[in-house]
């Protein structure tokens, strides 16, 4: 049996919007679990200490509370935190992964409870061997608990956005006088070339001067090879200005 594992899971909404989630890999998930195991161990140690302090007063009841507390923390840690923190525990937060419904709906408590109860089989015979094998064989990197609960574990995307202001010059652009040539370049230039040019402009200050000159010379040559602009459009422009001007024009919205 061969199962093609996917790096991302794609959701198509009834509104026709499509988006995808990057799936968390086994190593990241194992690291998150290890952190959680450490947290549980710490909590249980504190509980044990508390029981030993209270035990002389009411030995039987204190020990019973200790046993039940141990059990509740062991089983309930994942359930409680994943429910309160929408699919995350401390380990998952630190590793920036999250449990979510496989259909991208909101997680229900039933799902969280089942995926945590089924750790009993995923953790067999030791260190989540069964769960790990299941993840490797599963298309969506699901352990058995995830399959039963209809959940997946995804990497969390970044939540901040820096708006680039390094591209646009705001100055007169001589390429604007040749819209038909710009249109031809838009049509013929590979998107990869445009992406490289945009990135080069954004990161221009990170290059050594010589490397920068060489990079923009290469990029300008590639653009010139695709479309040749009139002499007056490119006269007196350095290679970098040439590339900047072209990218500026190519990435403008065509207004009606």
């Amino acid at each position: 049996m061969t199962v093609e594992r996917q790096a991302r899971v794609t959701i198509e909404t009834p509104e026709g919007i499509s988006f995808s989630y990057p799936l968390a890999g086994p190593v990241t998930r194992f690291a998150a679990w290890a952190i959680d195991a450490l947290v549980i161990f710490t909590v249980l140690s504190a509980l044990s200490k508390a029981v030993s302090i209270v035990a002389p007063l009411t030995p039987g009841v204190a020990t019973a509370f200790g046993i039940i507390g141990y059990f509740v923390v062991s089983i309930g840690y994942g359930m409680f935190l994943e429910w309160r923190w929408r699919g995350q525990t401390i380990g998952k937060r630190l590793m920036q992964v999250r449990v979510m419904d496989a259909e991208a709906l909101r997680l229900t408590f039933q799902q969280i409870a089942i995926r945590n109860l089924l750790r009993a089989v995923d953790s067999l015979p030791a260190l989540y061997t069964v769960g790990g094998v299941a993840m490797v064989l599963s298309k969506h990197a699901q352990r058995l608990g995830d399959m039963a609960a209809g959940t997946i574990v995804v990497r969390q995307s970044r939540s901040g956005l820096e708006i680039p202001d390094t591209i646009r010059t705001g100055k007169y652009n001589s390429f604007a006088a040749s819209p038909h040539l710009v249109a031809r370049l838009r049509q013929k230039a590979p998107l990869d070339l445009l992406a490289i040019a945009v990135n080069a402009l954004e990161r221009r200050d990170q290059f050594e001067p010589d490397r920068r000159l060489e990079l923009f010379r290469d990029l300008a040559r590639k653009f010139r090879d695709i479309v040749t602009f009139p002499e007056e459009a490119s006269a007196f422009l350095t290679d970098e200005q040439y590339v900047r001007g072209l990218v500026d024009e190519m990435t403008r919205v065509r207004r009606r």
Binding site: I11, T13, F19, D101, A104, L105, R106, T108, S157
Partner: peptide, 10 residues
């Protein structure tokens, strides 16, 4: 994706 999850509750 996050907004979809919030809006399309199970």
């Amino acid at each position: 994706a996050r907004a979809y999850t919030e809006l399309h509750d199970a």
